[in-house]
Structure formats: structure tokens, C-alpha cells
Amino acid sequence: MPGFIKYILFLIIALIIQKTFIWVIAVTNYNITPDLVLIILVYISIKEGKLFGIIAGFSSGLIIDLLAGSFLGLLALSYTITCFIIGNFKDENEKYLRNINFILITGLASLITNFLYFEIFFQSAASSISIIEVVYRYILPSVLYTMLISVFYLFKPGTKSTQKVY
């Protein structure tokens, strides 16, 4: 199967789960869920680079925005910028797709995305909630939960921590 079709397929599956089943594992009073789409986008950005990453990020973000019913373009913007930054980790040896590197980069991506998203969201909504509260209530739980779920990526065949890089 060509690479990009595989990515589209993974993104569609992640999108469906994200919009349907994910609330089953929501935590805290603010219904924090892991960002499965972002995990796939991180993988695509590291694997294929910035160009492919920002296209995938923008498209996925736009679809979620459409389905979310709130700020159209906000998640598209957040994902686009995040994928551009994460695309810099593209490496011929794909060392950032292995071991704990992937989890840490996913954490970084989640931090950027959530920071952009929640900051713009609460600022535009003229909310009285402070940035500290946004970080404490939404951003940190989202980042940690997404990182936790990204651990499962390490169990993907060929992603063993003992695998040597030449």
C-alpha cells in the first residue's frame, strides 16, 4: 500500500475514534482525552517531513473543527504549526521514531498544539480564566494523557527499544 494512503487510512481511523469512542476514556472534570490524531500526525511529520506534515495537520484539523462545531480553523492552525515544528525532527535514521524519543516529541507536539488551541480559544472567548488555570486544567492533563497513549506506539513491530541504528 502506498505510504500516503496508509497515512490517510490511519488518520481516518484516528478521527473516527477521536470523535466517537474517545469520551469513554475521558478523565478529570474537564473531560480531557488523549489526542490520537496528533500521535499519527507526529509520526507522519517525523517520517515524511514538514511539507507532508503540514498538509496532513491542516486537513485533519479542519475536519475536526468542522465536526466540533466551535472555532473553525483553530485546530487546523494549531496542527499546521505543530506539524511544521515536528517536521524538523525528520532524520534519515528515523531515530526520533524510536524509544522514548517518540513519546517526548509527542509530548512536545501536544504541548504546542494545546497551548495554541486553548490560549487562542480562551482569549477569543474573552474568558476570565487565567493562563495558569488553562495550563493546569487543560494543557498539562492533555499532554500527559497523549504521551501516555503514545507509549503504545513502542509496541508496534519494528519499534523495539533495543533496535540498533546504523
Binding site: 503540514i54 491542516f58 473543527d65 480553523g73 487546523a76 499546521t80
Partner: peptide
């Protein structure tokens, strides 16, 4: 894409 996002 950023411009498109902002326009949206």
C-alpha cells in the same frame, strides 16, 4: 495554510 486558517 496559516492565512487560510485565520480567514476561516
Amino acid at each position: 495554510l496559516i492565512v487560510v486558517s485565520l480567514v476561516l
